[in-house]
Design a protein around this nucleic acid. Structure first.
Lengths: 342, 342
DNA sequence: TTGTAAGCGTTATCAC
DNA sequence: GTGATAACGCTTACAA
């Protein structure tokens, strides 16, 4: 298919290439109504499709957004199998497409940074999920690109952040358990890293405990990885070693599923013998058995919001809220895995 | 960050831009060892990063691959929440990145075609998942781009296809049920469209029945949509209207999950009172309760293979197998949802 | 308002 | 081998 260029259009319309470019870019103040009409018609008849590479080269804007998601531990694959990330991506893509942007979805190889791809592709912005080394963020700043961070508590006004109040979420979950009469509450979680989302949820857990006058028992926190398998394992441990535990807060739904399965295998029924509450409300949460009580964050909405903020930033609409993180709401979703005691 | 261009490099190295370009593109036959060394050093010192937009403009290759996945019915969001697609995407991305390609992930809006984006971005190739109208494929051909189709039984040698033997899969699933003593076997599925994967699975179902000398009862096929909700609904109907049914083959794991839940709600236990077999073996299949017996297709592997074939095609390594679909293997995964009768 | 033309960073074609 | 230099398709001063 031979490419139709702006020159072809200009000839057909009997105007200059500049005029065509103006019309195409909506700078309608610079051209007459008549020209607009002629150009539009020529574009239509010729089936003209602009070349974004050329546009990017000339104007330094690519309409391309980089979206980075974490990878599996072996660095071989994206963590897209984790519904949390795929839902986020759904939201992002939907919003971006709506504004004529496209998304380059990728992981970032260990060691290698993101500088290369962002320069190579002339990205207009980026959305970064997950947590990385300090150096990674430093490098990002050098590119001087609008960037939205998701899941990061980095304290740097350079970055836009779309987050949730993880501490509150942890508190809400634990409180719900307490409100239902539970006192011996375990926490099952991925590794608690300083300033990570998990730490915040952990803090919320402790706050709820404290507020209720309950003893915080470090033995009740099971910390390893955010996987289904670890949930299973933790369930086994809990049953074997701490029969007094009547409820557990999993800091991610994925882990909660593992718990459900682990408890079932141990012949311990949920919620009759042990209650479980998750975090995230991924779509699977309502599909598992029994349906999971959890703290919902509107993940897709968060993706949309991230894209939204990025787009705003690109458009230069840096409001006063520029540096303040956007905090998305949280909601307790009561389903069938928490039982009221007594 | 000021951009370092090939010109800066050429000056620093004391050679022409052409020489630099040669070195960068590995046309080492055209330059002396000495030049290569000088260029490499200058690139290193300057931290040169090529501009793919310029490269794309000049050479018509973008190192960009379009990946299309279906959207939700309201056309608002990608169907990435469906683990089948997200796993596929994982495989594709991993393989592409390994070869220095990037992926633009998008849906395609109804009515609108894919011609625009492929021309705009100068895509080097595309991987299309899902099934579309005939016209969509015709349009794709016009772009004259290597294309790999997943999940399509389009009979057109223009396209590369990476598929599975859906008919065989349907047969395997049904046969497994029959081998376990079941005779009244329901089929729960999305809509059976001519030449769609679902139809093939349906055909396999019938073949297994026939081969076993079993009566094919149209009342036993529940055809609507590939969703969890429909699975639930179908379970209810089956229980209410056809108590004689002892096993059901769901043409997708997602539907099978719905069945599991629906049966449980109806107080009908799986596999004691009714057996269920799914299709796909998405990662959730081993996580649900009870773990799902299903037909596994290596979804990630299929994504890798799709990318692989696309890359080959781009490199011009059209082997004799060019036009023949690549068929990925299928495997019965026996877990806990099928019970042996008697 | 409109058109001309100079880039943007590469690649690729030629002479040398 | 090497180095000018003309594309590639578009945007954008600047001039008319």
């Amino acid at each position: 298919m031979k490419r139709i260029t702006i020159r072809d259009v200009s000839e057909k319309a009997g105007v200059s290439t500049a005029a065509v470019s103006y019309v195409l870019n909506g700078r309608l103040g610079k051209v007459s109504q008549d020209t607009v009409r002629k150009v539009r018609q020529a574009v239509e008849e010729l089936g003209y499709i602009p070349d974004f590479s050329a546009r990017s080269l000339a104007s330094n804007q690519s309409k391309l957004i980089g979206v980075v998601i974490p990878q599996t531990e072996d660095q071989k694959q994206l963590l897209l199998q984790n519904p949390f990330y795929s839902e986020l991506v759904c939201g992002i893509e939907a919003r971006l497409r709506q504004s004529g942007y496209h998304m380059i979805l990728s992981g970032v190889d260990k060691g290698e940074g993101y500088l290369d791809i962002s320069m190579q592709r002339n990205l207009d912005g980026a959305i970064i999920m997950g947590i990385y080394q300090e150096a990674f963020y430093e490098e990002l700043k050098k590119v001087n690109l609008p960037i939205v961070l998701i899941d990061s508590y980095i304290h740097d006004s350079y970055f836009h952040v779309v987050g949730i109040d993880d501490e509150l979420g942890g508190y809400m979950a634990t409180k719900h358990l307490i409100d239902n009469g539970h006192a011996n509450i375990a926490l099952v979680t991925g590794s608690i890293r300083k300033d990570g989302v998990v730490e915040k949820r952990f803090l919320g857990y402790k706050r709820a405990l404290k507020e209720a006058g309950l003893f915080y028992n470090p033995d009740f926190v099971f910390e390893q990885s955010v996987t289904y398998e670890y949930g299973q394992e933790a369930a086994r441990e809990i049953r074997d070693q701490f029969p007094q535990i009547t409820a557990v807060f999993a800091t991610s739904d994925m882990v909660a599923f593992g718990l459900l399965s682990g408890f079932a295998d141990a012949g311990c029924s949920v919620p009759e013998q042990v209650s479980v509450i998750g975090f995230d409300d991924i779509s699977m949460a309502r599909m598992c058995h029994p349906p999971l009580t959890t703290i919902r964050q509107d993940i897709v909405g968060r993706g949309v919001m991230a894209a939204e903020r990025l787009l705003q930033s690109i458009a230069g609409e840096e409001e006063s809220t520029h540096t303040e993180p956007t905090i998305m709401p949280l909601k307790l979703i009561t389903r069938d895995t928490v039982r009221k005691l007594n």
